[in-house]
Nucleic acid binder design. Structure first.
Length: 483
RNA sequence: GUGGCCAUAGUGUAACGGUUAACACAGCAGGUUGUGGUCCUGCUAAUACGGGUUCGAUUCCCGUUGGCCACCCCA
C-alpha cells in the first residue's frame, strides 16, 4: 500500500484534487509494478514466444476483467453445479451411458462439416483462430461433432452397438450475452450410436425430461420429424414453391433462408412470416412411410413412458445434421419464445459424413446454466454439503499443534471438518463456526492439553462437555450419526 | 450482428460541476483472564479504463471495456 496516501502533506497543500492526484500517482505506480512483474513472468514462462507478439500485448490498466460473456463460478454457486452434475451423471450411468471427454479445441472443419455452413452457429458464432502451426482451430460450439469424431477415430463401430456415451463440459459461442446465454456455457449431453430403433429416440428424450424432473423442474418435449434424405428434398421443394410467390411478405432473413436453408423458414418468429407458415405445407404430411412409422413409434414410446410432449410441425433445429426426430425441451409453463432448456434429435448421416461407416445415431444437449436458472426461478435449493459437522477451535500454541493433528484424525474418520488455525481468540473462532453452521465445535486450550481432555460444544444448545481426548473422535462420530 | 438501459468500497445503495464521496451489510481488530448465533467502538475499502469540455469532473460529452434487457439465434 502506498503510505503517502495518509501523509498529512495532502491536507497542507490545500486546494481540491490534491488527494486524487496523490491517489492517481499511487495507482499508476501499482499498475507499473504489476505490468513489469507480468512481463518478466511472461518472458520466463514462454521464451519461445516471438518478442513482437509479447510487445503487442496491450497493457492492462486498472483491474483486469473477465472476458465478455465469461463467468466465474464462485463458491456460493457451487452447490448448484454439484447438484446438476451429479443428477446428470447418476441418470446417464443408470441408463447405461459411459462418460467421454473430448478436447475443447478441435479443427474448425469438424464443425463446419457437421453442423452445416448455413447455420448461425457456424456462420458467425464460433471462437476460431489460427494456431501457431497454422491450423484453423475452434473452441467447440457444441458437443455432438467431437463425440462423433471420437467414435470414428477410435473404431467404436467395433464395439457392441448401440454405443451410449455422455459428456459434461464447456461449449463456446461468440454471441451477445444475455439471460441464460454466455459465451462459455456448459452442456450435459448424451449420444447413442449404431441403431436407428425409435426406442432410442424415446430413451434420449426421456433422459432429458428425467434430468429436469430429478431437479424438480417440470418440462415438456416439443417434437417433430425432419424426414430423411429420401423424403426431405421433396418437402423442401414444396416449401420453396409455397413461399416463393409470397417472397415479398417475408422478412429479410427469411428471404435469404428461402434459397439457402428453406426449412428454417418454419422457425421464424417474425409476425408476417409466422402468419404465412400456418398455411404452409407440413413436414409431417410429406414424410415417407418409414419416417412416418419411425415418428409414430417414438411418440408411442413417449406415451408409454408418460413423457409429456407436443408435436410441433414447425420445430426445426439449429444444426443441419439432424434427420428424422428432432426435439426440444421447454419449461412446462413456457411458450414459443422461452429459451429452450435443451434439445437434440437423430443424425443418421453424420457419422458417415465425418468419414465413418454409415451409422445411425441420436442424442441431446442440455444447457446447465439454464437448468440452474430454472432451479433459482423456482426456488429449488440444492442441499449444501459444505456445511461442516465439526469445527476445531484452539487456544495457544501447543493446543494449536494438537488441534491440527486432531483435524486430520477427524477427517480420516469421515467427518466434515472446518477450522481456522490463524485466529487466536476463541470468540472469533466461534463466530466462524457459527457462520459455517457447524453442528459441534471442539475446543482445545492450554488446560485441555495438560489434562488430556477436550471440550465438545453443541452449537445449537450451547451445552458443553469435557471428554477424554482419546475418546473425542469416536464420541463425535456417534453424535453425528445420531443427528 | 441490431437496438435500448447501465457502470461509485467485497455486496446493496446515497450524493455533488468545487474543500473530507455518505449509509447499510460483509470483512478485520477490540469491549481486560478461554465462548458464537445480541449490543457497542474503531479500522480497512470505491467513483471501470482512456480522452475531451472546464479555473476545477466522480458528476457533462465522446471512445473503449464490461454488465443487464430485447431482437436474431441458441443451450
Amino acid at each position: 500500500m502506498a503510505p503517502s496516501k495518509k501523509s498529512p502533506k495532502v491536507k497542507a497543500k490545500g486546494k481540491s484534487g490534491t488527494k486524487t492526484a496523490v491517489k492517481k500517482v499511487a495507482k499508476k505506480q501499482k499498475v507499473a509494478a504489476v505490468t513489469a512483474g507480468r512481463s518478466t513472468v511472461n518472458k520466463k514462462a514462454a521464451p519461445a514466444a516471438p518478442t513482437a507478439a509479447v510487445a503487442s500485448v496491450p497493457r492492462i490498466k486498472g483491474m483486469p476483467q473477465s472476458l465478455r460473456g465469461m463467468k466465474d463460478t464462485l463458491p456460493l454457486e457451487q452447490k448448484f453445479w454439484r447438484r446438476v452434475k451429479s443428477v446428470a451423471e447418476a441418470l446417464a450411468q443408470a441408463y447405461g451411458f459411459e462418460c467421454i471427454d473430448t478436447p475443447i479445441l478441435e479443427m474448425t472443419s469438424l464443425f463446419v462439416r457437421s453442423a452445416g455452413t448455413q447455420t448461425d452457429v457456424i456462420e458467425k458464432e464460433m471462437f476460431s483462430f489460427i494456431d501457431r502451426g497454422g491450423d484453423n482451430v475452434t473452441l467447440r460450439p457444441e458437443g455432438t461433432a467431437p463425440v462423433v469424431r471420437a467414435y470414428v477415430n477410435h473404431g467404436m463401430v467395433n464395439l457392441p452397438q448401440p454405443v451410449k456415451l455422455y459428456y459434461i463440459g464447456p461449449m463456446f459461442r461468440y454471441e451477445r450475452p444475455q439471460q441464460g446465454r454466455y459465451r462459455q456455457h456448459h452442456q450435459f449431453g448424451v449420444e447413442v450410436f449404431g441403431d436407428d430403433n425409435p426406442i432410442l429416440d424415446a430413451e434420449v428424450a426421456l433422459l432429458a425430461y428425467l434430468f429436469y424432473k430429478e431437479l424438480g423442474i417440470s418440462s415438456i418435449v416439443r417434437i417433430n420429424s425432419l424426414g430423411c434424405n429420401e423424403c426431405r428434398p421433396t418437402y423442401r421443394e414444396e416449401l420453396i414453391n409455397y413461399f416463393r410467390p409470397k417472397r415479398s411478405q417475408l422478412c429479410d432473413d427469411c428471404k435469404r433462408r428461402l434459397s439457402k436453408n428453406p426449412l428454417r423458414l418454419l422457425d421464424c418468429k417474425e409476425e408476417g412470416c409466422a402468419a404465412l407458415k400456418d398455411e404452409a405445407p407440413q413436414l409431417v404430411d410429406s414424410l415417407d412411410d418409414s419416417c412416418k412409422e419411425h415418428l409414430m413409434r417414438v411418440l408411442e414410446y413417449l406415451d408409454d413412458l408418460q413423457v409429456p410432449y407436443v408435436l410441433d410441425p414447425h420445430l426445426v433445429r439449429g444444426f443441419d445434421y439432424y434427420t428424422r426426430t428432432v426435439f426440444e425441451l421447454i419449461p412446462e409453463d413456457g411458450d414459443n419464445k422461452t429459451a429452450s432448456l435443451g434439445g437434440g434429435g437423430r443424425y443418421d448421416n453424420l457419422v458417415e459424413q465425418l468419414g465413418g461407416r454409415p451409422t445411425p445415431a441420436c442424442g441431446f444437449g442440455i444447457g446447465l446454466e439454464r437448468a440452474i436458472l430454472q432451479m433459482k426461478a423456482q426456488e429449488i435449493d440444492p442441499p449444501d454439503d459444505s456445511i461442516p459437522d465439526v469445527f476445531v477451535a484452539q487456544l495457544g500454541d501447543s493446543a494449536r499443534r494438537k488441534a491440527f493433528a486432531l483435524f486430520e484424525e477427524l477427517r480420516d474418520a469421515g467427518l466434515r471438518i472446518a477450522g481456522n488455525f490463524t485466529k487466536n481468540s476463541l470468540k472469533a473462532q466461534l463466530e466462524i463456526a457459527n457462520r459455517l453452521g457447524a453442528k459441534y465445535t471442539v475446543i482445545l486450550g492450554q488446560q485441555e492439553v495438560i489434562d488430556e481432555t477436550i471440550l465438545i460444544r453443541d452449537m445449537e444448545s450451547g451445552m458443553q462437555e469435557i471428554v477424554d481426548y482419546k475418546k473425542a473422535v469416536s464420541d463425535l462420530k456417534k453424535k453425528i450419526v445420531k443427528s
